[in-house]
């Protein structure tokens, strides 16, 4: 399988803490790759480095075969690499539909066109419906529950037709019914060709859904492989259960 995203020697220090330490792994095209590890092992920081929200001290990122020299969120989003945040980030004063349409990547020529055109609204409603929140379409997004905000953020990043989506703990703090729904969505989108890199603490979900699994501990990669390989790796058990 060809790699859609290649991470090579990524390093980030915060003062004395090395949050990400010479980390290398790949996300094969068409996969749902998991990035797991104990709290504070550098998963979110790795996401920030890859998507240009923080500047790496060392290391290289390749997306779709091309080196990403200075990762920039805008350019990456427009070339098909997008992410969600651990604490869902939505635009609270906009409606759900407006949140969705704002996530469409517009050319300059459409800046002065209508905010929400009919086909755009229809596409937004379709996606919201897949995520089970279409009946709230014209509510203020700020009124959504915590879990619903996560669903909205996930749905919104899909508006830009990405090729690779980085999800930071999509099911954290979400009730079991919604967890199933999110799993279902990821499976279906993956079947349609979308690649995922998922940070997730729910190990049952990871084992069911993801392949390969990358394990981080203290910023470095501990293991990388099929879920069953990783699960039985003594170093991984050690990192999670030991201290």
């Amino acid at each position: 399988m060809t790699a859609l995203l290649e991470i090579d020697g990524l390093t980030k220090r915060f003062g004395g803490v090395t949050a990400v330490d010479a980390c290398s792994f790949t996300v094969p095209a068409g996969s749902v790759t998991a990035l797991v590890g104990p709290n504070g092992s550098g998963k979110t920081t790795a996401f920030n480095l890859i998507t240009g929200y923080a500047r790496a001290d060392a290391g290289a990122v390749r997306f779709d075969g091309a080196a990403v020299r200075r990762p920039d969120p805008i350019r990456l989003a427009r070339s098909g690499l997008t992410r969600t945040f651990q604490q869902a980030r939505i635009f609270p004063d906009l409606t759900l539909v407006e949140n969705m349409v704002a996530a469409l990547q517009q050319p300059w020529t459409s800046v002065f066109t209508r905010a929400v055109r009919r086909p755009e609204r229809e596409r937004a409603l379709e996606l919201l419906d897949e995520f089970g929140i279409a009946r709230l379409a014209d509510e203020r997004a700020g009124n959504l529950s915590y879990g619903q905000k996560k669903l909205l953020e996930f749905a919104a990043v899909l508006m830009g037709d990405p090729r690779l989506v980085l999800l930071d703990e999509p099911t954290a703090g979400v009730n079991p019914v919604l967890v199933d729904q999110i799993e279902e969505r990821i499976r279906e989108l993956n079947a349609r060709g979308l690649t995922f890199l998922v940070v997730e603490h729910n190990m049952n979900l990871v084992m069911r859904l993801c392949d390969p699994v990358v394990v981080l501990a203290q910023g470095t990669k501990l293991a990388e492989g099929r879920p069953d390989e990783v699960r039985n790796d003594p170093r991984v058990l050690d990192a999670y259960l030991g201290g």
């Binding site: 998507t51 929200y53 969120p73 805008i74 989003a77 427009r78 997008t82 992410r83 945040f85 980030r89 939505i90 635009f91 609270p92 004063d93 906009l94 407006e98 349409v101 704002a102 996530a103 990547q105 517009q106 459409s110 800046v111 002065f112 066109t113 209508r114 905010a115 929400v116 919104a156 990043v157 830009g160």
Partner: peptide, 23 residues
């Protein structure tokens, strides 16, 4: 009423997030 307004409001609400969406 325009896309420009939608983009400006999203910047006002959360500029970093807006960048992540490609605005």
């Amino acid at each position: 009423r325009s896309k420009l307004g939608l983009m400006l409001l999203s910047i006002r609400e959360d500029e970093e997030k807006a960048r992540g969406l490609g605005i």
